[in-house]
Write a protein that binds this DNA or RNA. Structure first.
Lengths: 315, 315
DNA sequence: AGTCATTCTGTTACCGATAACACCGCGATT
DNA sequence: AATCGCGGTGTTATCGGTAACAGAATGACT
């Protein structure tokens, strides 16, 4: 592998000039810069991450903390990981995965945390390096997330537009900002249209939403749409409506949220609010690297729109 | 962070002795070793991966190549990743994820490849670093996998034992070693019991297995068990049996394979052959690191048993 | 012309670890 | 007693980069 030194010799300059071309190009004349770029191209120069890390007193490592239990997660995180990893790669950074099992060993330049719940606040605050959350929070920590409120508002509008008379919201039974935002998107649009909100919160498992439908079937006349805070809940709803020989999407509509995998597993395919997980992962990575370079300077929040992806569970 | 030097001073020895205690402890007297260990403990010494990498002309990075498309994969890979990452962490290694999107940039000490198909042979052979495959193969490359044959044999035995008269095998329609092994496990046990094998291969999507059941429903009398090469296929089978008001698990049994996530999504929960993905991931990591340390010396294969996890789709 | 500031490039030392070599002391060998 | 061998330890140079400083060239100003 070609080194800085090789490039320097080829371009007839010192190592330092080459280093500067890479890190502080404004300090080098255009003429030399051209020579150096040329040499780098010819030698197919790739900086040595280890050397760079050592010299900068960095690790070139970002740790990804996944606080959620793995067996309740969808392939969701694979997309997130891909997005993060690709972006980190571009900056000669690599990834370390931390889960509940393994405590934090080794060092890193920064953290990306996901699956966070209120009770993890202390843990997060104890992190001594630039940190970015994947998922909105009220702790004042920079984050990336879907625009949960806007997302559910959009879905509610759509349901109304399609003429469903009763629109029932099935939320996830946790006291977290994302859950509140989704609910708010629903209630806001409902009241804008002078409709009565109808909200139930359930544990995020398909068997609970199925049981819920079973236990309350007589409360749901034809022309009802179930707006679910996750595809998982949506799945259980579909299952139980079918069990009652309900007509989807004629008499009953279902809309889920996430659009990662389960919406495709459902039959018929679930209409859902699809998140751009991979892009959000990349955004997390960019944000944390920027924060590292700017010595921990706050980066603010970044919200992504969801896409209403139509399946066979809505008219 | 404490360095080698700090430890050396504290223990009144040279850096080199400390380094030796870590890497070649047999070259140091027990007396000094104790002093050094003591100092390391007191200072909470953690080796600097970047420095180590630089000195050893290593990268301390293992690349994970995922050749499969992400949207057809289950959370499967998250478990694998967790296993790999935890193990790598222990050895101060970190991970880089490569997918179809991003070509290989940067350098690494070794590769773990998964989701490989025959057509990827050339790519794999072009890798210039120690490589381990996740998934059996006939290219002579070291691998880790479930014992596919044994796994299906076990399931077939179980189905027979439970008195299902007809046992239908639904395989995945690809010409890959893992698929052949699974089929072989089934056929071997069937012929041992003097029963006629009945095999169909389908694309690995639930809607295809559902369609298959629909189109051939009259061929499957009561007391039939469907042994599926994936939980995904199993899901479609369950769906369609229910559509025909078939009794599961009384008249129809279903067994899937993988046990990662979909088996729990299914209703009733799918009886499946659960793989120890996380452990296999760790095994991959150990194997590739060993291979790196031994300059690419072949490591052979490692097969893991699956666990027959009973759900509600078998008697 | 001489001084000075400015802009650019090169030199040196260092980040934290390791391999190769030098060296020291001791028992075994003659 | 002198030499040899060898296990055990320290010294030096090195991996590939970067910051801090030094030095050279240029133009502006008195």
């Amino acid at each position: 592998m070609a080194t800085l030194n090789d490039v320097a010799k080829k371009a007839n300059v010192s190592k330092m000039t080459v280093s500067r071309v890479i890190n502080h190009p404004e300090q080098v004349t255009d003429e030399l810069k051209e020579l150096v770029y040329e040499a780098m191209r010819e030698l197919n120069y790739r900086p040595n991450a280890a050397a760079k890390a050592l010299a900068n007193n960095r690790t070139q490592i970002i740790k990804l903390l996944i606080l959620e239990e793995m067996d309740t997660t969808e392939p969701y995180y694979m997309f997130l990981l891909t997005g993060i990893a690709n972006e980190l790669d571009k900056h000669a950074y690599s990834l370390q995965l931390l889960t509940h099992q393994n405590v934090q060993i080794g060092d890193s330049d920064g953290f990306i945390v996901c699956g966070m719940r209120q009770e993890d606040e202390e843990l997060i605050k104890s992190l001594d390096k630039p940190t970015v959350l994947f998922g909105q929070n009220e702790m004042g920590i920079d984050f990336v997330d879907s625009n949960n409120e806007e997302s559910m508002a959009k879905a509610t509008e759509y349901a109304i537009e399609k003429g469903y008379e009763k629109i029932v919201y099935l939320g996830i039974d946790v006291d977290e900002p994302f859950a509140r935002s989704r609910e708010k998107g629903y209630t806001t649009v409902m009241s804008n249209h002078g409709k009565e909100p109808c909200i139930f919160n359930l544990e995020n498992r398909s068997r609970y939403s199925a049981a819920f439908i079973r236990d309350n079937w007589d409360k749901f006349p034809a022309n009802t749409l179930f707006l679910c805070a996750s595809d998982r809940l949506g799945l259980g709803v579909i299952r139980e409506i079918k069990e009652h020989d309900g007509d989807i999407p004629g008499d009953y509509g279902v809309i889920g949220h996430d659009g990662v995998f389960l919406d495709q597993i459902a039959y018929p395919n679930l209409t859902t609010l699809k998140q751009s997980i991979t892009e959000m992962g990349a955004a997390c990575a960019r944000m944390v690297l920027k924060k590292v370079n700017e010595n921990g300077k706050p980066q603010g929040d970044q919200l992504f729109e969801t896409e209403l992806k139509l399946g066979g569970t809505t008219r």
